[in-house]
Design a protein around this nucleic acid. Sequence first.
RNA 1: GCGGGUGUGGCGAAAUCGGCAGACGCGACGGAUUUAGGAUCCGUUGGGAAACCGUGCAGGUUCAAGUCCUGUCACCCGCACCA
Length: 810
Amino acid sequence: MDFKSIEKKWQTRWEKAKFNHFDRKDDERKKFYVLEMFSYPSGAKLHVGHWYNYGPADSYARFKRMQGYNVFQPMGFDAFGLPAENYAIKTGVHPKDSTEQNIATMEQQLRAMGAMFDWSAEVKTCEEDYYCWTQWMFLQLYKNGLAYRKEAPVNWCPSCNTVLANEQVEGGVCERCGTQVVRKNLTQWFFKITAYAEELLTGLDSLDWPDKTKNMQRNWIGKSVGCEVEFDCESGDTIKVYTTRCDTIFGVTYVVLAPEHPLAKKLTTDEQREAVEQYIDYAAHASEIERLSANREKTGVFTGSYCINPVNGNRVPIYLADYVLATYGTGAVMAVPAHDERDFAFATKYHLPIVKVIEKKGEETVLPYTEDGIMVGSVQFDGLVGEEARSAVAKYITKLGKGGSKVNYRLRDWLVSRQRYWGAPFPVIHCPACGDVPVPEKDLPVRLPYDVEFRPDGKSPLAKHEKFMHTTCPVCGGEAERDPDTLDTFVCSSWYYLRYADSQNDKAPFDRAAVDKLLPVDTYVGGAEHACMHLLYARFFTKALRDLGYLDFDEPFKRLVHQGVILGPDGNRMSKSHGNVVSPDDYVNEYGSDAFRLYLMFGFSYTEGGPWNDDGIKAISRYLDRVEKLVLKISDYKAGKNPPYGAEEKTLDYARHSTISRVTKDMEAFSFNTAIARFMELTNAITKYDALPVKNVPLLRSVAEDLVKLLAPCAPHFCEELWEELGHKDFVFEEDYPVADPEKLTLDEKEYAVQVNSKIVCRANISTSLSDEEIEAYVKTLPEVVERVGDKTVRKCVVVQGRLVNLIVG
RNA sequence: GCGGGUGUGGCGAAAUCGGCAGACGCGACGGAUUUAGGAUCCGUUGGGAAACCGUGCAGGUUCAAGUCCUGUCACCCGCACCA
């Protein structure tokens, strides 16, 4: 088959018939929204990863379509972002120009793939008609207190010259470029994702997502149940600490503040001032490597002040130490060196007292002892253990009016400011008189100017664009400046799946009815690397928009599937520097898009991925040839009179229906490699039947047609062509996906493994109508069994219907 | 350190509720066809001469374990001073 011409032929026909367009008016069929993560328009062409994501997922979408769903499968581009800007800095090509060029190339390649993308719904996040609404989203969050600006210690990537969200720092280095991140205190915009921490956590339970991904989000949100306690200072200030171990509170021998804690300087005495300021400076400049080193020596400094432990009135010293994080809990902890490893190390180093207040049950207590144990030296609480102990102490603290139970989350608010050019500008004006003023919605979009100097120097490129910066305050009309930062590109991708539902709308980001009808996404397919970024942000957006009344569902993605990663042939991640990049184009040119897609589906376990290896691609190509020859040969047969329907025909029909039933399950489960194995088995069964001298032509033909239908989602152009050759006028995709007939799935007899004392002695075909007792009786007559059993008695017989019989003798 | 995952032929991989390990392919070997090569078609193919042995390793539960339990090793991923 000349795949090049048939690919073109069917792509053109599908387009002409608007086959790929989601039918918004259709109320008969159930909608089904299949979404693949949209792509970043990089300079390189479509790589194997894109193909692996989109090809098999498209087969799934086509499968759902043939099952009778009104399938919506859109595609678009996550077009803002750093790579285009970095490319511009290197080459001088403007990000807008290179991005548009790349999108054009990729669109063409994506079309050539032959996927049923509904291009009429396409979105490009860098275009005004999209980022206008991204800015609108910001304004809604701002109006409702979910976006705020504050000075905070933030992660700064010196190579990308911008701040990063917590989620974009991996092990202390920039997720994108691998550069060590440094801390800076900057005034930045945040989204209050923490307001949804609890719902983001509990909502996971209802989602059909990989457990691993759900667990990663749970970990990331990091719920912790503990207790807040107030320690009064002699200065009159109060230090709030957070602890999960209030059962150890009688063992507090000092209190530690993070160096950035607001009370740090205030509580410092004159004698200690110099040492403290030095330490604060040291902590601010300690490199991240140092901070991250697991067994880094603890450092700290005494403030000179003391505070009072509310439960026993003990006077304890207040220290500063950078092992306490400013951004978690209250930025202060009560130190119990006897029962916490970090406090133990610190106390040992600075010769602070260590007081044991928990004892290990029945064994000697070795300090630091951090497990649950029996409270001792704790007056009225002595003898209490674990959870019970903590709740008693927490109650007591509440009664004292010094705090009480408290839930904390590890999740931080989402920092969305970026000091870069190629992104959506903040719709905010800073007025010397009125402060931060949101741009009125009617003035959106705040256009991103083209003529900008984007050489990075740590300041936002837009800040140097006077025309952009200079504006008037919408409130007082006075001179004012725009915010020079741009929004994190993850903001753009947090709502694109909603825009697809109504992408041409120029009055609103989307119409509520359209979105409520199409969403949530039924199946979302994309990489696992987004577990704690995009997938979390998108959930947050959905919940926030729901609460603001813009939509009516709780979760954006009902089902999530991660495709695996295709590595280079050497087992490493594909990259130019490894020199192991495999280009799909070469294979597509040589074998065709269907064969390439089919190979991706067959050669790997979809969710696992693995090293690239093209050994099997010829085999797939050969398989398609076999199918073609076989089907065409059968289509030429003339039906004889009185076609036979005996054992052979029954076997063939059984092969057909068991293939249908198993493939349907496999496709639904994204178990594409096994689905294709079933196609091959069915093909083998047809070949075998076809070799018989006398055959039932109508049956054979109908089985062959079913094979074409079953295979169609996985090899769409190829099957359309075959379908046409078989004499059909309509698309094969207008056909119903075959449904297994349960009657044809029952066999008269099945092969059993016959075991004596759990060892297989023979196999036997046994009628499926026999009862366990009848099977046992029959099996006992088999010569192999008689020989093994001899005169020993059968003490037990296990029958597993349809599978095996096990006689226990002796 | 914490959380999660993976480990099966020469290779990619399969294996419903615990029920014949290795489906389907690749490769290899043998044969047919062919002047030859290629292509195609048909067989064989976990190891072992065999009894038997085989799912990282060592135990356990069970009539029966790749699957369940305990311990252990290796690799991968995520988090990592979160009090």
